[in-house]
Design a protein around this nucleic acid. Structure first.
Ligand SMILES: [Zn+2]
Length: 265
DNA sequence: GTCTTAACCTGTGGGC
DNA sequence: TGCCCACAGGTTAAGA
């Protein structure tokens, strides 16, 4: 469940764990922990101070003996976090990679079928490799133009780059471009001045709408999903809901891109 | 430097 | 039924 809206909703749910004390840590898949292994021992006995998000990364602020650190989780393609009560983790046991045990009988399970997800522990509450968060008030149409307009890459590829804007993935990139009426194959250098504003508005709108809907409906029985139904993503061969032309699929940056070749200019 | 592609991993569904 | 290919919400190293 892993683009910005899904991660944002995960973080909202995780906040129910604020104040919990960590009683135990189980690393079922040692390869999931990429760095900060020396902090692993510190987790036990630490207290949860809060959760926040940067791009698609989830930060869990932990504190122990006045030492502040962060358990950072990236869900990859198929990862999700589930809060469990009692010892009822049987339904997710098959893909369980990491488990935190709290007081009051709560558990936090990190499950991930495809193992693209990762966890690391750090003292820094910020990843400098990531670009601006699309929901940040600092983002403006001029900022997007500044980031993208010199780039000779397809606009879809630019939206997927986390070092420029962090949090947009394959679904919401297509959704935003459809809303903005921009073909995903256009180069950054070929986007017109007024289109940056359209793209800005489309990004904000689709992300906010999807967050309210609890994320995208993936129709997956294992991975939890929300009620946002994509307007163009995954709709190859179906009529465009704006102009009725057939939605086409094309590979861009080795990923499927869905768009309307009639009303996306 | 910039930009593109393929690999990482597991599972599912379609065609033959 | 089995086999092979394409595909899936992401990131990143390697190649051009
Ligand atoms: Zn259309």
């Amino acid at each position: 469940m892993p683009e910005l809206p899904e991660v944002e909703n995960t973080v909202k749910k995780l906040k129910a764990l604020n104040g919990c004390l960590v009683k135990g840590v189980f690393l079922f898949d040692p390869l999931v922990l990429k760095s900060g292994k020396s902090y692993l021992l510190k987790i036990k006995g630490s207290k949860i101070k809060g959760f926040f998000r940067q791009g698609k990364y989830i930060f869990c602020n932990l504190s122990k003996e006045r030492c502040n650190f962060y358990l950072v989780i990236h869900l990859g393609m198929s990862g999700f976090l589930a809060i469990k009560e009692k010892d009822d983790v049987s339904d997710v046991a098959e893909y369980l990679r990491f488990l935190l045990v709290f007081n009051k009988g709560f558990f936090l399970a990190f499950c991930d079928i495809r193992k693209f997800g990762k966890v690391f522990i750090t003292k820094k509450p910020l990843l400098t490799s990531l670009g601006e968060d699309p929901l940040s008030p600092n983002l403006t149409p001029a900022k997007i133009a500044y980031l993208f307009k010199e780039k000779k890459q397809k606009i879809k590829s630019l939206l997927l780059r986390q070092d420029l804007l962090s949090g947009i993935g394959n679904i919401y990139a297509d959704e935003a471009l459809w809303l903005a009426g921009i073909k995903p194959t256009r180069l950054g250098t070929n986007i017109k001045e007024d289109e940056w504003t359209k793209l800005y508005k489309a990004i904000k709108k689709v992300l906010q709408t999807a967050i309210k809907a609890g994320g995208t409906d993936l129709g997956d029985e294992v991975v939890p999903s929300g009620r946002y139904t994509p307007l163009v993503y995954g709709r190859e061969g179906f009529p465009c809901s704006r102009c009725r032309a057939k939605i086409v699929r094309e590979k861009i940056a080795s990923r499927s891109s869905y768009f309307c070749s009639r009303c996306q200019k």
